[in-house]
């Protein structure tokens, strides 16, 4: 059974009298353990697609099932539970809580699933260790470099053992060297922990780390296949 299965999903926006379709009938599926790069120009619909995959948005029409559960009809709070348990987000702007330690940032998703404080700390420390930030748990985001901040964000995405990580241009704010390190981390997580990783990027250098590349143009998938390794 595939992890993600989308069937003919569309997302339309009303701009005055004109209806714009940001996503026009996309169907595809992804298996567990996939590492997918989603590429396309801005306005191609890739962000809308990612928002729907991340259960932050609902499609106007079509079906989306995640691990066999049809999520396109779920309520706001039910989607929140899905996001908490099944999906880890990594954003290009890191989106960490400022004035909050790395450890507490990583604990954040567990605040919303009722884990006791002791377990929260243990799991968060383990996640920080996985991303190579042991010893930095009490640093605040403004005391960490961009790469380190992104590692904290990845630890936060990992901590609930979600089977899926969605990364929205995770290297957008990082230099080339740090970008490579972050991508290596994603590859490691994908290979060692069998986590499905989907990253949105417009840099071919970043896309090469993936196994599969999907290209969007004007709300449609224009190509989908194995990533061409240089």
């Amino acid at each position: 059974m595939s992890l993600i299965k989308v069937q003919d999903i569309s997302k339309n926006y009303n701009l005055g009298d004109v209806q714009v379709c940001a996503l026009c009938g996309v169907s595809l599926s992804m298996d567990k353990g996939d590492f997918v790069a989603v590429m396309g120009q801005s306005g191609s619909g890739k962000s809308t697609f990612m928002n729907i995959l991340g259960c932050l948005d609902k499609p106007t029409s079509g079906r989306y099932s995640l691990e066999g559960v049809d999520v396109s009809e779920l309520s706001r709070d039910e989607l929140a539970v899905i996001r908490n348990k099944k999906i880890g987000f990594v954003f290009h702007g890191f989106n960490l809580l400022s004035r909050t330690s790395a450890l507490e940032n990583v604990e954040l998703p567990m605040l919303y699933n009722g884990l006791p404080a002791k377990d929260r700390k243990e799991l968060a420390m383990a996640a920080l260790k996985t991303v190579g930030l042991s010893g930095r748990e009490n640093h605040h985001p403004n005391q960490l470099s961009g790469g380190q901040q992104q590692r904290v964000a990845i630890a936060r995405a990992l901590v609930n053992q979600a089977p899926l990580i969605l990364a929205d241009e995770p290297t957008g704010n990082l230099d080339t060297k740090t970008s490579r390190e972050i991508m290596d981390l994603f590859v490691k997580l994908n290979e060692e922990s069998d986590i499905t990783v989907i990253i949105v990027t417009h840099e071919p250098d970043i896309a090469v780390f993936s196994k599969r590349t999907i290209r969007f143009l004007d709300g449609r998938v224009v190509s989908d296949g194995h990533t061409v390794k240089p």
């Binding site: 932050l56 706001r76 929140a80």
Partner: peptide, 16 residues
């Protein structure tokens, strides 16, 4: 607002 967005993304429900 952004903090609220982050909390929602990681699974905060309406009542949280």
């Amino acid at each position: 607002t952004r903090e609220i967005g982050i909390r929602m993304a990681v699974g905060a429900k309406t009542w949280d």
